[in-house]
Amino acid sequence: MSDAIIEFAKVNKWYGDDFHVLRDVELAVGRGERIVICGPSGSGKSTLIRCINALEEYQEGRVTVDGIVLGDDVKAIEAVRRRVGMVFQQFNLFPHLTVLENLTLAPMWVGHTPKKEAEERAMQQLERVQIAEQARKFPLQLSGGQQQRVAIARALCLTPKIMLFDEPTSALDPEMIKEVLDVIIELAGQGMTMLCVTHEMGFAKAVADRVIFMDQGQIVEANTPAEFFDHPKSERTRDFLDKIIGH
């Protein structure tokens, strides 16, 4: 596939000597494609998306992001990280910096943007996630949902081509999940390539072009939401869907 922005070619990864966490992973993500990844814990979904921005290294195969092959080359890793934004389950905001400083840090120090310009752009992103009025507060003064929206805005400040979401709503109180998903849905409507690890199946149905189910380090099934939810091909997928939607 020539228009793929992310390509996994027979990727294998081990933790230590005996935990084979990714097994022969083959995946091509098209430009602007929105993918939801689900699966039981320990199935390798987080590891998979963390390989895309080299937070994890792999031992076999090849990961290509926007034409750049990820390996040991530090320059390649830097180049990829400039193109990829990431949102974590635990937000990982910098607690000693204000919300605004969290957003301007990388543009100023990595992108060498002047402070004033960086702050203007940061405010635009904060408005986009509807939290501009909290700009001068410290992260830990905000609710979980607000913190996660700040984290999304922080990633957006580097104008990434690809956004990775690693269980963005799993650490949130139930009433805050919607405000975060709404922001992600709004982003999804704007043509950015997105990969999201989540168990929010309603969200998957609403925005995903493809849903991927992983188990034991393998991609078991990848299909459009309609096909995936209504006619899962694999026995294992059906089992999993029964468990999470069944009640």
Binding site: M86, F88, Q90, N92, A106, W109, V110
Partner: peptide, 23 residues
């Protein structure tokens, strides 16, 4: 310092010394 802080810094493209100094 939690590992997540280092990962967030790495994701944002901060280098080793920038991460140490700023985060």
């Amino acid at each position: 310092i939690p590992r997540g802080q280092l990962e967030a810094a790495a994701t944002l493209g901060l280098g080793y010394w920038q991460t140490q100094r700023k985060i």
